[in-house]
Simulated assay, not measured.
Amino acid sequence: MSSGTTSRSPTGDNVVVRLRRGIQQAKAAGFEVRMEHLGDGEAGWCQIGSKRILFLDAAQTAQDQLEELGEALANFRRAA
């Protein structure tokens, strides 16, 4: 196992648990969360009509996805 999947937060949760929690929070905030192979693209969010979609790169580690999720949500808050 890589350290990216076992690193623990101050609360003792590993990165996969934190990623799952973050995804649930994004869904609760009205996002559809999609895990896609983005290639050279970047993770982020977009809005089509009234639908908000957040894309995470399925090829990334859980730690990288968690960081991308946080950045995408921060960008959304700044844009709102």
Rank of each mutant, 00 (worst) to 15 (best):
M1P: 07
S2T: 07
S2I: 09
S3H: 05
T5W: 00
T6E: 08
T6C: 02
T6D: 03
R8F: 08
S9V: 05
S9A: 14
P10D: 01
T11K: 13
G12D: 01
G12Y: 10
G12F: 01
D13K: 15
N14K: 09
N14F: 02
V15N: 05
V16R: 09
V17H: 05
R18H: 04
L19D: 09
R20A: 14
R20I: 12
G22I: 01
Q24L: 06
Q25G: 04
A26L: 04
K27T: 03
A29F: 00
A29T: 01
F31P: 09
E32M: 13
V33C: 13
R34H: 01
H37Q: 14
L38A: 12
G39F: 00
D40G: 12
G41M: 03
E42N: 15
A43P: 12
A43R: 00
G44D: 00
W45Y: 13
W45V: 02
W45P: 07
Q47L: 05
I48H: 10
I48M: 08
I48C: 03
S50I: 00
L54S: 10
F55I: 01
D57V: 07
A58K: 05
A58R: 02
A58N: 00
A59D: 15
A59H: 09
Q60C: 12
T61H: 02
T61N: 11
A62M: 09
D64V: 04
D64Q: 15
Q65I: 02
Q65S: 14
Q65E: 05
E67L: 11
E67K: 13
E68P: 02
L69T: 13
L69C: 05
G70Q: 02
G70D: 07
E71Q: 08
L73T: 06
A74D: 11
N75D: 11
N75H: 14
F76T: 06
F76L: 02
F76M: 02
R77L: 07
A79T: 12
